[in-house]
Design a protein around this nucleic acid. Structure first.
Length: 269
DNA sequence: ATGTCGCGTGAAACGCGA
């Protein structure tokens, strides 16, 4: 079972790119972020024509996440637990059926973690950075609860966290960015250290594999990127991990998203 | 040194978020 994650930066503006990539890459499950539309504006028909079911948590203008699956799925959560006041569409979780008869289902979540920049405003800590850190702090107990179920699961998405200096082209320049701050990194590490496997890092430990390149300053042609899109696997999913990769193709196309898809392959046993 | 997108508003250019 191939599971991919992709921050598309507007599913409407990106629709031709998304459809062509789905046809070419043939993922079984796709976790999408930054839909930038309400649920009723999600292109269900076009994506459904390619054989996908969709679970969407949308919002006007900003955020928005979805799960696409070729097999049937059961939606479990449309928001990350822990703050009923949080109205931003950044989390959706579902259980997708296995591909073959008798194969085990996999729980997946599509995550769009807050960016958190700027880290300060008017000299003090910013509300945006605090929201990002709180969001990470809510994700940790939720992951801990999921681990207790001993289900195979994949928490994938745009984490807006660059885990180490090896994951950014110029660590010094990004030192005070919310994506690279130690406060973000310690919380991300705490999440991973619960016992999750970073599907890219586990199989491709070399430094400087990126998933995001800013639109500005020719970052893409110069390969000045960051690794901020992650697939975090439970032990039961990691046991089935046979391959993973970053598909840089879509980033080089016309009208590209600033992120490119990241995928992993789970043995269907 | 700078360089970009996408959205909403409201009718063109701007503010916001990234």
């Amino acid at each position: 079972m191939r599971i991919a994650t992709w921050n598309v930066n507007s599913v409407k503006a990106r629709l031709p790119r998304v459809l062509e990539w789905l046809k070419e890459a043939q993922p079984d499950v796709v976790l999408l972020q930054e839909l930038k539309c309400m649920e009723d504006a999600f292109p269900l028909l076009e994506i459904g024509d390619l054989g996908y079911n969709a679970a969407v948590s949308g919002q006007k203008t900003y955020n928005g996440v979805a799960i696409l699956s070729k097999t049937p799925m059961e939606i479990d959560l449309r928001a990350l637990p822990g703050d009923p006041e949080d109205e931003q569409a950044r989390y959706v979780e579902a259980v997708v059926s296995g591909k073959k008869k008798g194969s085990r289902p996999v729980r997946v979540a599509s995550i769009y973690l807050p960016n958190g920049n700027p880290i300060e405003d008017a000299g003090g800590p910013s509300a945006k950075f605090a929201y990002k850190l709180r969001w990470l702090e809510r994700l940790i107990p939720h992951a801990r609860a999921l681990l207790k179920t001993e289900d195979a699961f994949v928490l994938g998405g745009d984490y807006n966290v660059c885990p180490t200096d090896d994951d950014v082209y110029d660590p010094a320049a990004w030192r005070n960015d919310a994506l690279c701050r130690p406060e973000s990194r310690t919380r991300f590490r705490e999440l991973v250290y619960l016992g999750l496997t970073d599907a890219i890092h586990a199989l491709h430990p070399e430094p400087h594999h990126y998933t995001y390149w800013d639109y500005q300053a020719g970052a893409w042609p110069k390969d000045q990127g960051l690794r901020i899109d992650h697939l975090l696997l439970s032990p039961q999913a990691a046991d089935r991990l046979t391959a993973s990769g970053i598909d840089k193709g879509p980033r080089g196309k016309e009208k590209a998203s600033d992120h490119t898809p990241v995928w992993c392959e789970l043995e269907d046993k």
